[in-house]
């Protein structure tokens, strides 16, 4: 049994709650090595996503993801807007044909999302960006699926890997995004985008585990 459109809506709502809860934390992380808006940006975006989903009844998981994508693109701005927007857009495309998402579809969606982020942002692992959370997450989710894991297991693996990946950005010197302007001074801080990616995946995993 996979996730239906309404499961995905529920998951996105959980993501929005987590973003709201961690708004200040994300902004504070961005204050240290960026411009102190990451939490604010994502919260503005997911607040708009909630409004867009409110009353709407998208028929497929893909339709839900597409609404999330276009809303984030038009409301977030900054680097995170086009990056997360593209991620959700690619995920929507990757799942276009399914009414329900099984573990393999979730892995495909995550893989497409990462490819979208990399296509737009050109970051490589180790550049101290959200890619450092997303890339290990995709690898772990794929491994979990290969091991026969269900959606919950796949997302748990992704969330766990993203969390370690995000933590691992702390010592890095940023080579992409605003933090790169700081050069060596960017080391010693958790990357806000990596942290938000890990929070997003954890929220999805938590919903799947219910």
């Amino acid at each position: 049994m996979g996730c239906t459109a309404s499961d995905v809506v529920a998951a996105i709502k959980a993501v929005a709650d987590v973003v709201a809860e961690h708004k200040v934390e994300l902004t504070q992380l961005d204050r240290a090595i960026g411009d102190a808006d990451h939490g604010e940006n994502l919260n503005r975006g997911f607040t708009a996503v909630l409004a867009a989903l409110d009353g709407a009844t998208p028929e497929t998981p893909s339709a839900v993801l597409k609404t999330v994508a276009t809303t984030l693109i038009s409301k977030v701005g900054g680097a995170a807007g086009p990056l997360y927007g593209t991620a959700f857009l690619r995920a929507a495309t990757a799942t276009a044909k399914s009414d329900e998402l099984d573990a393999a579809a979730v892995v495909a969606a995550l893989t497409a999302a990462l490819e979208g982020v990399v296509a737009r942002g050109k970051a490589e692992p180790g550049d101290k960006t959200m890619v450092d959370a997303l890339e290990p997450a995709v690898r772990a989710s794929s491994a979990a699926a290969d091991d026969g894991g269900d959606v919950a297991a796949v997302l748990r693996a992704a969330a766990d890997a993203a969390a370690s990946g995000a933590e691992a950005t702390i010592p890095l010197v940023a080579r992409k995004g605003r933090a790169s302007y700081l050069g060596e001074r960017s080391a010693g801080h958790l990357d806000p985008g990596a942290r938000s990616s890990s929070l997003l995946l954890r929220a999805l995993a938590d919903v799947a585990a219910r």
């Binding site: 604010e40 940006n41 038009s74 701005g77 900054g78 807007g81």
Partner: peptide, 11 residues
């Protein structure tokens, strides 16, 4: 004009 210190959006 975007939000304060945040780039505007494509729309």
């Amino acid at each position: 004009p975007g939000a304060v210190f945040t780039s505007p959006t494509p729309d």
